[in-house]
Write a protein that binds this DNA or RNA. Structure first.
Lengths: 133, 133
DNA sequence: CAGCATCCCCGCAGATACTG
DNA sequence: CAGTATCTGCGGGGATGCTG
C-alpha cells in the first residue's frame, strides 16, 4: 500500500472557531472590521468617549457587545481604557497611537464605500433586473 | 396622560437581521470586510481566477461560502463574472474598476495589520499579564 | 454608571447529495 | 467544473437580572 505525501489531509473547509487556524493578523483584521469594531473606532477617532456615550452615539448596540468589542480592541492595544476610581464609576475610552492608525484606515474605507454607494446601487439594480428578466 | 416625543421607541439593540435598519453603505462595508470577501478581493487583485483556482488559493473555504461571497460581490458591482458557454463549464472572476478600488483599500488595511502585528502581540501579552497578576 | 453572569434563540456556515 | 438544494449544529449576540 503506497503512502504518498498526497495522503496528507487536504485542506477541508472545517468549522470556523474564532481565531483558530488562521494567520494571526487576519484575526486583528476581523476585530477592526467587525460590525461594532468599525463603529467604535470611527467614533473614538472623533474624540474620547465614556462607555455610555459610546453606547448612545452608536445606538442599537447591546451593552454586552460594546463591552466585548472594547475589551478586544483594548487587548489588541488599539483602545486605551481609563477607569477613574470614583463613585459613580467613570470610564473613558480613547484610541492609542496604534488604534488611531487603524481607525483612519477603517474610516477611509467607510468613506470610500459611502462615496461609491451610488455605483453599487446601480450595479445591484442591473444585477437584479437581469435576474428577473 | 401626557404624551411627549420622549415616548417614542428609544433605539434598542434589536436583533440584527442582515442589512436591516442600517445605513446602506455599512452593508457594503460588511461585504468587503467579511471573512471570505477580504480573501477573495485580495486574491483577485493579483489576477483573475477561475472558481476552482480561487477555492484552492484561499483554501479552507467551502464551495457554498465561496459561491455566496462571489455572488454578493458581483451584485455589488465589485466582481465581474465571465461564464464561458463551454463543456466543461469555465467561469472566470475578475475585479471591476470599482472592485479594484475596494480591494486596494482592503489590502492596505491587511498589510498594515500585518506590519503592526508585533505591536499587537506585545499589547496582548501586557494585557494578559496584567490580568493574571 | 459600568460591567458580569446567565439564558436562549435563530441564522451563518459546513456537510452532503444532486444537476447542467 | 461550477454550481444548486437541503439539512443541521453551534455559537454570535440580544434580553434580562444582579453587583461594586
Amino acid at each position: 500500500m503506497p503512502v504518498s505525501a498526497a495522503d496528507a489531509d487536504p485542506p477541508k473547509a472545517g468549522k470556523y472557531v474564532a481565531g483558530e487556524e488562521m494567520c494571526p493578523y487576519r484575526l486583528v483584521l476581523e476585530h477592526v472590521t467587525s460590525r461594532w469594531g468599525v463603529l467604535v473606532l470611527m467614533q473614538l477617532l472623533d474624540r474620547p468617549h465614556r462607555f455610555s456615550e459610546l453606547r448612545r452615539a452608536i445606538g442599537r448596540v447591546s451593552e454586552k457587545m460594546l463591552t466585548q468589542t472594547l475589551q478586544t480592541l483594548e487587548r489588541d492595544g488599539l483602545v486605551h481604557r481609563d477607569a477613574k476610581p470614583v463613585i459613580p464609576p467613570r470610564v473613558d475610552y480613547s484610541l492609542t497611537d496604534l488604534g488611531r492608525e487603524a481607525a483612519r484606515q477603517v474610516r477611509d474605507l467607510a468613506l470610500w464605500t459611502e462615496r461609491r454607494m451610488a455605483d453599487v446601487e446601480r450595479a445591484r439594480k442591473a444585477y437584479d433586473d437581469a435576474r428577473n428578466a
